[in-house]
């Protein structure tokens, strides 16, 4: 290999580590329950037919073996903590450790979602402050934090679009999606009951205004636009795009996956976007965790 000393980290690649099941042997334990302070029950007589007779084949190991197992597995992963992770569209930025620390603070981490609101004031304040910050950053008027990821946010946003059109008397039939879009965009439009119509990009990889003008009609519910686009370019004609859509009563949805290029420099709410989602796991540094969890807040204009 002609690597001439270039490159850096090397993971712990040579360690062999079988599956956790292969390391198991009966009778090993990594847990200890406190003594029962109530009378023991006979599960099989309490549950009758519903009692589980055969146990699931879960592994049986001691604590040190579990620590080693998962630590060894971890060494087979690349990670932001090891080095640059230039995975486009995913915004693999530093995941600050204080985030992990505060998310585990007593009272926040152990709050039950159905606890009385009087006992949840702290978390509600956190939610409120985050909402206000995100509305300011996006320049939008309202926000919901409920969606669990970007794609889930798209789903929420397009349902919102649909509900609005319905309130105007016609749900409309199609959603325009540029050929440069992420796969979740068309998949989302489809699950919202819309036909997906492809919009061909122009020679610069951006929205072709003429094609847009041709394709937008009274049955167009929205355009799902990523801005900056998936080639990392700002749609400088964004105001024209919004105008063309709005003239036909269609809405502009923005996939906010690339918001890391805009925070503090430009606001979607100012350039004509009606509804958008953010990815807290991209722009706002929450860890990707090997594929999740994420969070995909949806922000929109007041009329929605």
């Amino acid at each position: 290999m002609a690597m001439q000393g270039i490159g850096k980290v090397r993971a712990h690649q040579t360690q062999n580590e079988g599956l956790v099941f292969e390391k198991s042997s009966p009778g090993k334990k990594a847990y200890k329950l406190p003594p029962l302070d109530v009378p023991a029950v006979d599960a099989s007589s309490l549950l009758g037919e519903a009692h589980r007779e055969t146990l699931a084949a879960l592994p049986e190991l001691s604590e040190i073996e579990i620590i080693r197992h998962f630590t060894r597995l971890s060494t087979w992963n690349y990670a932001i903590d090891l080095g640059m992770y230039p995975l486009g569209s995913c915004t693999m930025k530093y995941n600050p450790r204080v985030n992990e620390f505060v998310a585990r603070i007593d009272g926040l981490a152990d709050a039950h979602p159905y606890r009385p609101e009087s006992l949840a004031q702290g978390i509600l304040e956190v939610i409120d402050l985050l909402q206000r910050c995100l509305m300011e950053i996006t320049g939008m008027d309202a926000i919901t934090l409920q969606p669990a990821a970007g794609a889930h946010g798209e789903f929420t946003g397009i349902l919102l679009v649909r509900a609005w059109h319905e309130s105007q008397g016609n749900a409309r039939k199609k959603v325009l999606i540029p050929d440069s879009a992420h796969g979740t965009n068309p998949a989302t439009a489809a699950i919202c009951g819309y036909a997906v119509e492809n919009l061909k990009s122009n020679a610069d990889g951006g929205i072709d205004l003429e094609a847009l003008e041709r394709q937008v009609d009274e049955e167009t519910a929205a355009l799902m636009l990523t801005n900056p686009s998936t080639i990392g370019v700002f749609e400088s004609q964004i105001h024209r795009i919004a105008d063309i859509l709005h003239a036909k009563g269609a809405l502009l949805y923005m996939d906010g996956a690339n918001m890391n290029a805009l925070v503090g420099k430009a606001r979607p709410g100012d350039f004509g976007v009606d509804v958008m989602h953010l990815n807290l796991h991209k722009t706002f540094s929450t860890p990707h965790g090997g594929g999740g969890p994420g969070s995909g807040p949806v922000a929109c204009k007041a009329f929605l």
Partner: peptide
């Protein structure tokens, strides 16, 4: 919490590049 806070799990993406995400994949 001590294991999931290992950076190699916490700060890694969806395991599309199998060669360098065997840890996540096997788990």
């Amino acid at each position: 919490d001590s294991l999931v806070q290992r950076g190699e799990f916490l700060t890694s993406y969806t395991p599309y590049q199998a060669e360098i995400t065997q840890g996540t994949l096997q788990a």
